[in-house]
């Protein structure tokens, strides 16, 4: 056998070894996934027959929520379907107000906390550490859990919803804001320090003008998420359209379910569209300056 043959054989052998190694690794990964899936299907009580039953039941449910044609014309049917439109629109407005107010409060708190939470903007490491842990806690506890607690403390109504969403917003926006702050250009800060500016002044004139457009666009994005959240917190009694939706689902008033869900989807979509245009306007201005 010549040298070329040896080289080819070596390459083929190495290739085979690599292939076997990859096969083994994906085999182990796949087996682990299968075991995990089997365990989760056991613990979450999933069985094939129930799966089929569940999908069939869902289709049946969907069919029942469809509005019925009574033969009195489309307008009469629509009026019958959306019999509570006036009340629902008021509740939807409440939901949007909950989302907007919570966004405003959360963004304000996040703005204040994002400076001590930025590692390169404060001297004291413990202040930074403490602020970050507070933000982490606010972010990690689900909105609905805060809502449950606040409904207990402040009673049923939108107040609990606003507070719950505001705290969660503080956590998630505070993290994003502090990361933006850390990436801000240090030149203006040093320039301001050189003129004798204090910490507050160098933040206000050195950092804020750089980061404000990004903050605004994140806040608008959060507003979109919060309107969705505001539609949900009503499930535990924290106001808005969610409270009504919970009621009609629990009382099996089928046509109302589809009517309200469609209204929520329409509202959320409309707000997404408006907010997207605003965000593009904000970012556009940022790119110009």
């Amino acid at each position: 056998m010549n040298a070329t043959g040896d080289a080819i054989a070596a390459v083929v052998a190495a290739h085979g070894a690599l292939r076997r190694q990859r096969l083994l690794r994906s085999g182990i990964g796949g087996a682990a996934l299968l075991v995990a899936l089997a365990a989760s299907s056991w613990i979450s009580e999933v069985r094939p027959d129930r799966l089929v039953e569940g999908i069939g039941g869902a289709l049946d449910y969907l069919d029942r929520t469809m509005p019925r044609a009574t033969g009195e014309g489309v307008v009469a049917d629509l009026r019958e379907w959306y019999w509570g439109l006036g009340r629902w629109v008021v509740l939807l407005l409440d939901t949007v107000v909950i989302g907007a107010l919570a966004t405003l409060m959360g963004a304000t708190a996040a703005f204040a906390l994002s400076f001590p939470a930025a590692r390169n903007l404060v001297q004291s490491a413990s202040l930074c550490f403490g602020t970050r842990r507070v933000l982490e806690f606010a972010r990690a506890v689900p909105e609905l859990v805060f809502a449950l607690i606040f409904v207990f403390a402040f009673g049923i109504g939108p107040l609990a919803g606003v507070l719950a969403i505001a705290i969660h917003t503080t956590g998630s926006l505070g993290k994003l804001f502090s990361e933006v702050n850390e990436n801000a250009d240090h030149g203006p800060i040093e320039g301001l320090r050189a003129t004798g500016a204090g910490w507050l002044q160098s933040m206000g004139f050195g950092v804020v003008p750089q980061v404000l457009p990004v903050f605004l666009s994140y806040t608008l994005l959060r507003f979109e998420i919060n309107v969705r959240g505001a539609a949900i917190v009503g499930f535990v009694g924290a106001g808005g359209i969610g409270q009504e939706l919970y009621l009609v689902i629990r009382q099996f008033i089928y046509p109302d379910i589809s009517a309200i869900v469609l209204l929520i989807i329409a509202t959320v979509t409309a707000i997404d569209l408006v907010s997207e245009r605003l965000r593009h306007a904000v970012i556009g201005r940022e790119n110009l300056s």
Partner: peptide, 8 residues
């Protein structure tokens, strides 16, 4: 979840 609690 609320809907599927009703269904299953």
């Amino acid at each position: 979840a609320l809907i599927f609690v009703n269904v299953v």
